[in-house]
Design a protein around this nucleic acid. Structure first.
Length: 214
DNA sequence: GGCCAGGACACCA
DNA sequence: TGGTGTCATGGC
């Protein structure tokens, strides 16, 4: 399976090139973006981030000190603004008080203990903000690999993540680029309504379906 | 005007 | 434990 996963990676990399993720300038901006992007189009997230920047609120320390109404007003374009404002505030305060070096599963458990931080958001923060080798599983990952027949459509988060962790070396660089490439690919070829024409994974998709690549 | 978007959580059976 | 409703804006 390792060689198939790496083959898919190579095809995507040759097709799209390096994605240079996460699209953020600072460590704090990664964390803020990871919360804002929950169930939201990234274009809307960029508007919210721009608003935060204008108000000089694009850092955890600034958010921690800011009035929640001001945060809410800034992030309105990203949707779910009441929930997300609370989550930004909570995470900003929590990370300020977290003094243990964020290098282990304990830190992941800590993130998951925060209301509003689920597995995908936690792993996005761990991988892209803290450079820790946690594979990020999102709706696109699930869609692409279930359509390839490699995982079941109903597979849960920990199963899918465990799958990648089992068959790939724990490389931050690889996990970073792989997830970014999957997002790029899914936006072009793997929306909810399949658009398979000229899909660079078409060959491996047919191979997977024919050979029972599981 | 409806569908969808780089989720998470509360509630209920 | 699994299914469903809610949060909500903006692009296509």
């Amino acid at each position: 399976m390792t060689k198939h996963l790496l083959q898919i990676y190579r095809i995507l990399f040759e097709e799209y090139g390096a994605q240079h993720w996460w699209p953020a300038d600072t460590h704090d901006e990664v964390i803020i973006g990871a919360i804002l992007t929950q169930n939201t189009n990234w274009k809307n997230v960029k508007k919210a981030i721009s608003n935060l920047k204008k108000k000089q609120l694009l850092s955890l320390s600034a958010l921690s000190a800011a009035d929640i109404a001001m945060i809410t007003d800034c992030i309105r374009p990203a949707g779910h603004y009441n929930q997300k404002a609370e989550r930004l505030k909570l995470v900003s305060n929590a990370l300020k008080e977290y003094i243990v070096p964020p290098v282990s599963n304990e830190f992941r458990a800590f993130l998951l203990s925060l209301k509003g931080i689920g597995p995908e958001t936690a792993d996005s923060i761990l991988l892209y903000a803290y450079n820790l080798p946690y594979f990020v599983v999102d709706a696109y990952t699930n869609r692409i690999f279930s359509r390839l027949g490699i995982i079941g459509e109903q597979s849960n988060y920990s199963y899918i993540q465990g799958f990648f962790h089992r068959f790939l070396e724990p490389s931050v660089q690889l996990f970073n680029e792989y997830h970014a490439l999957l997002v790029r690919h899914a936006k072009l070829h793997c929306r909810k309504s399949p658009q398979c024409a000229s899909c660079p994974l078409q060959d491996i998709c047919e191979y997977a379906l024919n050979k029972g690549l599981t």
